[in-house]
Design a protein around this nucleic acid. Structure first.
Lengths: 242, 242
DNA sequence: CGACCCCTTGACATGCATCAAAGGGAGTGG
DNA sequence: CCACTCCCTTTGATGCATGTCAAGGGGTCG
């Protein structure tokens, strides 16, 4: 999938021309490659939105009236506990959908990690497309299953792994989702704070775990938002099977 | 749903006559109440199995060739990490399905927490039923969504909560799934070890958290497998919003 | 009655959180 | 072009929640 790869790379380097919109056609990383084609049918009634860094797209509990597709940038889905702590359930990368499952209210708040461009569709027209197109239904079930697997995996990592293992898992997962190869620069758009809240630890512990990996030459950190994975095998060994 | 309640109670008291099979018709706690009715169509080709305590029903990685329905008893779905630690992803209670999602291999090992009776259907006939019945599809999507929500919730609990909070969440969830009321005896079929592996902590920490709740008169522990929730509000306050 | 298993409690150890302070890097104004 | 400031990251010092190790208790089954 060379096209997908180049799409990921374009994102890595923050090169977003007006033309990159076309990437959405085939860069869906979780489902089969043609879901985006069906979504194009909704294009006439879709809305394009931009959000600046840390801007809130919708809040936990809001009615889920639209389905969103991330065109560029990174989104975080998070919940805020009563004691003020924040938990990040997932990051959403370009090409992925938000709010496509059948919940009437959003279970998470969605915020822009980086500047974000979204395409959104009214729930009603989206549902009509789903009802009329078996292939779309199949895609959505696949997506739902993939999300379930990811959530189960995340629970596993949070429940049974140490700080270093969690960070290793996180890097491997991010590399997988961005189609980044070993030795390449891996884009890490989220802050240390975001990573900490995603992995259930503190900023400081994230830093220390990264420092440990760096000192072992497993990763190189040219700057705080780009990593190079020198030894993926070692990362996998640390992450065990996550 | 008094019938469902009595089903739960029958389970609580380990009273399983041959007749309780009829309960499966309406006690599905996660989907709409009529999914079991459709499954009855598969009854002729279904298989009934019994498993003793701690017996393995299938292993992580096995091909998913059958769909299971728990008739009685409690099942645990778990993974074993390379370092020997065990993580329990979920417990499956009577009336619930296992292996209905579209994965070719089982992501978890399934073991009997208590003596278990299962009904199972060949994947092929199950898929045929799904393909031919839109209502079943809708039910399964609901189940999938509910499972996703549960997994997200579990990740939240594991990532952002203390030992006491996790135990409180666990008790509330169990009470909710068994339709147990405050003041009633809540059946806790799983061992402290199971609870620990489900909540990402050790047996001892589970015991201490329970002891703390007991000392505050929030729960009473008549015996190690039955609890009485004296103060559900206090439990909720401890669990925050889990 | 004894043996086994699980649960419970205590004493100690440790990984991670917390508190504190010192480095960068990017944008801004001089 | 440099200096300033702000924010994020990194590292160090200390404390606490939970893990680990150990011993005793209670129920169940043979």
């Amino acid at each position: 999938m060379p096209m997908t790869l180049s799409a990921a790379r374009a994102h890595s380097q923050n090169v977003f021309s007006g033309r990159h919109v076309h990437l959405e056609i085939d860069d869906d990383q979780r489902g089969a490659p043609s879901l985006a084609l069906y979504l194009r049918q909704l294009h006439p009634s879709s809305t394009r939105q931009h959000f600046g860094r840390n801007e809130v797209m919708f809040q936990e509990g809001d009615r889920a009236e639209r389905v969103y597709r991330v065109i560029s940038g990174t989104v975080r889905l998070c919940r805020h506990a009563a004691n003020g702590t924040r938990h990040i359930a997932d990051f959403v990368l370009p090409g992925e959908l938000i709010g496509f499952d059948e919940r009437t209210t959003h279970p998470f708040t969605a915020e822009a990690v980086t500047p974000v461009t979204l395409l959104s569709y009214a729930r009603s027209s989206f549902d009509r497309l789903v009802a009329s197109t078996p292939a779309v239904r199949a895609h959505l079930v696949s997506l739902l299953t993939a999300n379930l697997r990811a959530a189960e995996q995340q629970a596993f990592v949070l429940g049974a792994h140490t700080a270093k293992q969690r960070v290793a898992s996180f890097l491997l997962r991010l590399a997988g989702r961005e189609d980044a190869m070993a030795g390449e620069r891996l884009d890490v758009p989220m802050s240390r704070n975001d990573i900490a809240d995603y992995l259930g630890m503190t900023i400081e512990t994230v830093c220390r775990a990264l420092a440990a990996l760096r000192d072992e030459n497993i990763v190189t950190v040219p700057n705080s938002h780009q990593f190079i994975l020198n030894d993926v095998a070692a990362l996998r060994a640390i992450a065990v099977d996550a």
